[in-house]
Design a protein around this nucleic acid. Sequence first.
DNA 1: GCTGACGTACTCGGATAACGTTTGTCCGAGTCCGATAGG
DNA 2: CCTATCGGACTCGGACAAACGTTATCCGAGTACGTCAGC
Lengths: 158, 158
Amino acid sequence: MKLSGGVEWALHCCVVLAGATMEPVPAAKLAVLHDVSPTYLAKQLQALSRAGLIRSVQGHAGGYVLARAAEKVSVLDVVSAVDGATPAFTCTEVRQRGPLAARPEDCLEKCGIHAAMDAADTAWRRSLQQVTIADLAGQLDERNPGTLAKVGDWLAET
Amino acid sequence: MKLSGGVEWALHCCVVLAGATMEPVPAAKLAVLHDVSPTYLAKQLQALSRAGLIRSVQGHAGGYVLARAAEKVSVLDVVSAVDGATPAFTCTEVRQRGPLAARPEDCLEKCGIHAAMDAADTAWRRSLQQVTIADLAGQLDERNPGTLAKVGDWLAET
DNA sequence: GCTGACGTACTCGGATAACGTTTGTCCGAGTCCGATAGG
DNA sequence: CCTATCGGACTCGGACAAACGTTATCCGAGTACGTCAGC
């Protein structure tokens, strides 16, 4: 039960993109800003791009831009894009194996274990869905005012 | 974001232990019953034993027995024992790195990302905690009556 | 002075290796049951 | 016939390799900007 480390980077990048002015931000700058491996961060951003959360702009002054408004991007979207949308628990249908294997026609509905796991997974996803990138950006600017603006300036002048 | 595969086995074993009569059930029998690797299942059972969920009985007619009543063992207990109790998300304090690093004294409370992740993790755990092994056993016997008794007989006669 | 084409430099994108964790396996230490010999 | 002792076999427990997934990296394809020559 471990979440991909890139999720954290991706979320921070999304917050930065939400706070930055609309000019595309290249992946290299985001990597320097967060002091992480540029190539690996690029991989995460590619995943976000593939999922349609951010849009890539190629060419001389290219980079990444949020595809939708920050209010329309939930944390769950980012997590699913980077870490994969498959549930953490995968039922291997143990009950249909072994000497006392249940017949498939008796297994039309999920077993209790599977159901409990799926319920927990749903609760997890629902919780993540209730938070948006805009919420995170707002919270950051409330606790440490000026931070987001400072980042925007830094992105512009470098 | 993937859960250890042994979690499913451990849960099934706990249900069987809850339904079986009180005689200790050896790990080898549980492995045959579920048609899984005996040695690897033993590893999971050791984890459950270390967590105090089941109690091991050594010797000729030894095996494993539930340490508490099935109503007092939650699915979360089993998951935590096998998969580890550390949260899925680990905050690496990205905000304290890079050219615009925040000072540690400004990071006394968790950042928004960390908080959102922890909230989701709590929701997940809370959901798992509401289901007990007894619930799973009852559900199984309700949908497929006689299954648990059949397993008990099989354990006794082999 | 304006317009068009060209070269350059910068961007993303996917294919490719190294590390770590999980999965799977093995053998040794400890313990209880049953048989056996003695009283 | 009862009891104490011994032997054996079965149990769990921790230490040891292999495989998969994640982490990290590189180089190639594509595109927009700036420059320069021509009109």
